[in-house]
Simulated scan of single mutants.
Amino acid sequence: MDPFHHLNTSFSNPYHPLLSPSPPHHPHFPPLPPPPPLAAELPQSSAGALERERLPQWSHAETAAFLAIRAELDHSFLTTKRNKALWESVSARLGAQGFSRTPDQCKSKWKNLVTRFKGTEAAAAQPADADTAAAQAARQFPFHDEMRRIFDARAERAQALERKKAKGKDVRPEDDEGGGEGEEEEEEELEVEMGEEEGGRGGGAKKRRRKQAARTWVADQGEVEAMLREFMRRQVEMEEKWMEAAEAREAERRAREEQWRTAMVALGEERLELVRRWREREDAWRARAEEREERRHQLVAALLAKLGGDAS
């Protein structure tokens, strides 16, 4: 057999890899698409846009029901410092009507409505014709009238409160609408602008807020001082109780130490007495042993003497 048969056969094959004019063909697969970015890797604006897309839009009927509920609770919002429970109540009442909204969504919706109402009020203040301004505001913001009624009712309550103060009547703390710290800043700014447009009512509202802020600050300062005094009083009482307890523990420790010392002295005396008695018994036993030994010697001597006499 030809030893070069294998080489000759390989080089005679036109499809051999060494004789192929082009490199062997490898299958080509298209590149895989990149994985979608995580929510944490998205920019804040994109994440906010995605979040807004996921939230269902407020319908006209849902917004109207929300404004009706908010108008009923407006006085409570103004007189309550913490309005989280009120927003939960608004959410629950919306759920009872068939609209599922969280308290945070309701709060955000109210802020948006206040912002839009503020913009329409600013735009309506520019035209000279009131009817044209009202129509333009209604076209831009369909809930302009509902928001206007809410703030008009708020202004009427403030005027009634001022009249009561002017007449010298006692005003309950819950009737004072300036104590509501839970209202948002945009609502306060909107009230000021609305009051200035209505002929000086904003100055009175601003003065009322300043007076109320001063009263609140004084009340808070008095509460802080009272809390500090109460804290110091309790601190002194606790220190006195602690000193009394420490003295009682020290007296008990001294009594126990004295009792222990007395017991140790008694035990020492008892031990000495036992040692004395043991020594006395030991001395008596030794004396008896010596006496017995002496008698034994005498008997042995007498016996030996007798035996010696007999032998002689």
Rank of each mutant, 00 (worst) to 15 (best):
residue 277 R to I: 06
residue 239 E to D: 07
residue 209 R to F: 04
residue 286 R to H: 02
residue 265 V to E: 09
residue 244 E to P: 00
residue 219 A to H: 09
residue 216 T to L: 11
residue 261 R to K: 05
residue 246 A to Q: 01
residue 257 E to N: 04
residue 231 F to C: 13
residue 294 E to N: 07
residue 263 A to T: 06
residue 217 W to R: 12
residue 229 R to A: 12
residue 188 E to R: 13
residue 258 E to K: 04
residue 239 E to R: 06
residue 277 R to L: 11
residue 273 E to L: 10
residue 294 E to Q: 15
residue 239 E to Y: 05
residue 197 E to D: 07
residue 281 R to N: 05
residue 278 W to L: 14
residue 260 W to N: 08
residue 206 K to C: 05
residue 237 E to I: 10
residue 239 E to Q: 06
residue 211 K to Q: 09
residue 213 A to P: 01
residue 190 L to V: 00
residue 265 V to Y: 04
residue 257 E to C: 00
residue 276 R to V: 02
residue 232 M to Q: 15
residue 251 A to S: 01
residue 207 K to H: 05
residue 211 K to A: 14
residue 236 V to Y: 02
residue 238 M to T: 12
residue 249 R to G: 00
residue 191 E to S: 08
residue 230 E to A: 08
residue 295 R to E: 15
residue 269 E to M: 08
residue 239 E to H: 13
residue 266 A to P: 01
residue 283 D to K: 10
residue 239 E to G: 02
residue 284 A to L: 14
residue 295 R to Q: 13
residue 236 V to L: 11
residue 205 A to P: 08
residue 201 R to T: 05
residue 217 W to Y: 12
residue 267 L to V: 11
residue 203 G to D: 11
residue 211 K to E: 13
residue 196 E to P: 03
residue 230 E to F: 03
residue 230 E to M: 09
residue 230 E to I: 00
residue 282 E to A: 09
residue 214 A to N: 07
residue 287 A to V: 03
residue 295 R to A: 15
residue 240 E to F: 01
residue 193 E to I: 10
residue 275 V to Q: 06
residue 286 R to V: 12
residue 217 W to E: 13
residue 198 E to C: 01
residue 243 M to L: 04
residue 202 G to E: 04
residue 221 Q to Y: 10
residue 294 E to R: 15
residue 189 E to A: 10
residue 193 E to V: 13
residue 233 R to W: 06
residue 222 G to M: 12
residue 216 T to I: 10
residue 276 R to I: 02
residue 231 F to K: 13
residue 221 Q to A: 11
residue 203 G to S: 11
residue 250 E to T: 00
residue 271 R to Y: 11
residue 278 W to S: 14
residue 214 A to H: 12
residue 234 R to M: 07
residue 230 E to K: 12
